[in-house]
Amino acid sequence: MSAITSRRTTRTGIALSRRAGMVFVLPALVLFAVFILYPLLTALSYSFFGWTGIVRGGFTGIENYVALFTELPFSTDIPNAFLHNLLLFAGAMFFQNTVGLGLATLLHRMSRFKRFFQTMYTLPYLVSPLVVGYLWSLMLSPLFGPVNSVLRAIGLGDLAKPWLGDPATAIWVVVIVTAWQWIGFPVLLYGAALGGIPEEIDEAASLDGAGPWQRFRSITLPMLVPAIGTVSVLTFIGAMEAFPIPYALGGSQGSPAGATDVLSLLFYRTAFESGSSNAIGTSSAIATLLFLFIFGVSMLITWLMRRAERRLY
């Protein structure tokens, strides 16, 4: 009888724990449903209808999606904006996995002022991207910006130019500013991952004659795969959803001449500035495609990184 009673008590305890867990999780689920799931499903439903202003018309199927790839200006703006999103992702990944990882490694080996430098590198990440974008637009002003003033003062006046007014340099300014603001995130994440690697492994490899680069390549880097996967997924999501910095640096039109245009700006223009009678249907189609692409690629990156992680053990 005691064994049966013990089992019943265990089951009752598990059931109560699950109920208690659901009570704590329920507020988050409600917020997710109201602010995330409901808008997503609403946008999806809107994309299958024609609209006249804010009045919903009849069911149109995939006509709004077809229009994105067959009608102007979408047939030219979408590839251009999509390319810029990919450039943002590539640029951010390059800086985070080179400069960010390098800074995290240096800080990990420091004994003094470590927290200070971690805080300094993280501060831009904590500032609103819109504020960061406007500050950099002032710094890069060809009339009174300090960047061109410093170049002229040190004898490099030939390099001074209207950085945000030249289509050849504007998108790279967006890439660099975005990477600069995000650099604090991988510094913190890689720093935490480096702190979790047992020092005994590195010391054993050093005693076996492995040099610093060999130890980093064969021991440290493989053990950072989970952190690299997290950085990759979040960087991809952030780059594909980028709006504040491109908006602050190039405006809603992606100036100059669409050189700083991204998909979120295209969505914004279509929904609020196009003047189209079917703005709701078309912009909802853009939002739905963007979500599906982000979700699909994020799942693919996660799967690849988990597969690489399993190979290590």
Rank of each mutant, 00 (worst) to 15 (best):
S284Y: 01
L156Q: 14
T98N: 09
V30F: 07
V225S: 11
R8M: 15
A20F: 03
S274Q: 00
P212E: 03
T76R: 06
T60V: 14
P142W: 04
V99W: 04
R269P: 07
G102E: 10
M110S: 15
S276Y: 11
F69M: 09
N64Q: 11
L126H: 02
L304T: 12
A205C: 07
M305H: 08
L189V: 14
F113C: 08
F95L: 15
V173M: 12
L292C: 11
G229P: 02
A204N: 07
V233K: 00
P212G: 10
M223E: 06
I245F: 03
V34S: 06
I219K: 13
I228T: 05
A153G: 05
G250W: 00
P198C: 09
L207M: 15
L266G: 03
L156K: 08
G275W: 00
W51L: 04
V177S: 02
L289A: 06
T169K: 05
T9D: 05
L194H: 05
T282K: 02
Y46M: 12
I201Q: 10
G184Y: 08
A3G: 06
L151H: 07
L16C: 00
R152P: 02
H84D: 04
G53A: 05
K114C: 03
V127Y: 00
L41Y: 00
Y247L: 14
A3M: 02
F74I: 07
F32P: 03
A81V: 11
P256C: 12
P212Y: 04
A248M: 03
L290R: 11
M223R: 13
W303R: 14
L221N: 06
R115T: 15
R109D: 04
A248G: 09
A259D: 03
A160Q: 09
E241C: 04
N85Q: 09
V23C: 08
I183D: 00
S17R: 08
A257W: 01
W163M: 13
S276Q: 10
G102F: 01
I197N: 14
A210Y: 03
F267H: 06
P73K: 02
M110R: 11
